[in-house]
Structures are given as structure tokens and as C-alpha cells.
């Protein structure tokens, strides 16, 4: 492959693929979707349990999975990176009848940050 072809290929790859997000796997479809539990380390298992219960009260886990896999919040199209996770956690917490405590949200934010880091690994 010529250098030029190689360069074009690299640019194209950058445009059309999501190599940075490949690391985080989801299992299930639609309302059954969640993160693959095998990739959650032991110290975040509890946070994952909280997420599985609290973050599906108003919508499915699909929203969070997509946000983490694509780096873009699916509804508002805003960046969903480590600077944003806390604000999203706070937004969900402040919704009327969110039925979540700060502690729970904090744990879920930590978990989302971990998943974002994992997603960014080459």
C-alpha cells in the first residue's frame, strides 16, 4: 500500500469509524440492554447494581450505554465525557421523584467515568 493510500485510509477510518469506543460492550437489546457485567471490576460492582436499579426508573439503560459508547448524549447531542458525567448525574438527581440519593448518583458517576476511560482505551 502506498503512503498516500495509507494516509487516505487512516483519514477515512477516522471519519467513519468509532475505534475509540469499541472497548465497552453492551448486552441485550432495547429495554433489556445494559453494560456487559464481565467488564465491571469488583470495586464498581456495587455502583453497577445501583445503576441497574436506579437509572432505569424513567428510561432504559440504552441511553447511558449509547452516551458512553458514542461520547454523545443521545437526546441533547451534547458531549458525554468525563467533564459531563457529573452534570448529567446531577440533572437526573434533581428531577422530581428521581428516587436517588447523592451517594448513589456519585457512585454511578464514578462508574460512568470508569466506563468512559475504558471506552477511550486503544
Amino acid at each position: 500500500m502506498s503512503v498516500l493510500k495509507m494516509a487516505i485510509f487512516v483519514v477515512l477510518l477516522a471519519v467513519v469509524s468509532t475505534p475509540v469506543h469499541a472497548k465497552i460492550r453492551a448486552v441485550g437489546k432495547g429495554d433489556k440492554m445494559t453494560f456487559d457485567p464481565t467488564q465491571i471490576p469488583a470495586d464498581l460492582k456495587q455502583a453497577f447494581e445501583i445503576m441497574k436499579v436506579k437509572c432505569i426508573q424513567c428510561h432504559t439503560q440504552e441511553r447511558t450505554v449509547i452516551a458512553i459508547q458514542t461520547g454523545i448524549a443521545p437526546v441533547t447531542g451534547q458531549p458525554f465525557d468525563k467533564q459531563a458525567t457529573k452534570a448529567y448525574g446531577i440533572k437526573m438527581l434533581r428531577k422530581p421523584k428521581s428516587n436517588m440519593s447523592r451517594e448513589e448518583v456519585k457512585k454511578v458517576v464514578d462508574l460512568m467515568n470508569f466506563l468512559i476511560d475504558e471506552a477511550a482505551k486503544p
Binding site: S17, T18, R25, I66, T70, G77
Partner: peptide, 17 residues
């Protein structure tokens, strides 16, 4: 472009994306 990226087969897509 970011929102309309083709996803991997087993990756989920939101309609809005």
C-alpha cells in the same frame, strides 16, 4: 457526522443518533 456514524453491528443506535 458524529451523531450519524455507522455503528458496529452489535452496538446500539438511538434513533436520534
Amino acid at each position: 457526522a458524529a451523531a450519524g456514524l455507522p455503528q458496529k453491528v452489535d452496538e446500539p443506535t438511538a434513533a436520534s443518533s
